[in-house]
Simulated assay, not measured.
Amino acid sequence: MHSVRCIEVDFSESKVERVKRLRIVPQFFSEEAAPLKAANRYMRTKSRSLSPKSLRTEAEHLKEFLAWLSLNEIILDDIDEDSFDNYIEALCMYEKSNGDGLSWNTVNARTAGAYRFLIWASSSGYCSYLKPDDARLVANSAKGIYKSRRHLSRQIKEPVKFLLMDDALNFISALGVVSGRNSPQ
Rank of each mutant, 00 (worst) to 15 (best):
R136M: 12
C92A: 13
K53C: 05
A139T: 04
E64W: 11
S124I: 00
F117S: 00
D100M: 04
S49E: 15
S124C: 06
S54F: 06
L102C: 15
K96V: 05
D85W: 14
N105I: 10
A112K: 14
I119P: 09
A135F: 07
L76W: 11
E89W: 14
F117R: 01
L69N: 02
E64I: 02
A90M: 14
N105W: 07
I74M: 13
G113R: 13
F65Y: 11
R136G: 04
A114W: 02
H61N: 15
R56D: 09
I88Q: 11
C92N: 00
F84W: 06
S97D: 12
L55E: 09
Y129S: 04
A39L: 08
D82C: 04
L55W: 02
E58N: 14
A39D: 05
L91H: 02
L137W: 12
N86Q: 15
T106M: 07
V107T: 13
D82M: 13
A139E: 15
S122C: 12
T106K: 12
Y87T: 00
T106N: 07
D82A: 15
W104Q: 03
N140F: 14
L102N: 15
A67E: 11
W104A: 10
S124D: 01
A109C: 07
Y126P: 02
A139V: 07
R116W: 06
A67T: 09
I74E: 07
S123N: 14
S122I: 01
Y126M: 03
L62C: 06
N140C: 10
A109Y: 12
L50E: 00
T106H: 03
L69W: 00
C127N: 01
N98G: 04
N105V: 13
E58A: 13
G99L: 04
G99S: 11
I74Q: 13
E60W: 07
G125A: 05
A112G: 14
E64R: 14
Y115D: 09
S51Q: 09
A121R: 09
S123Q: 13
A67C: 14
R110D: 06
L102H: 14
S51R: 13
K53H: 12
R41E: 06
E81M: 05
N86A: 13
S70H: 14
L66R: 08
S124Y: 08
N72M: 06
S83R: 06
C127Q: 06
D100A: 10
G101A: 03
E73C: 09
S51H: 02
N140L: 15
G125S: 01
S103W: 03
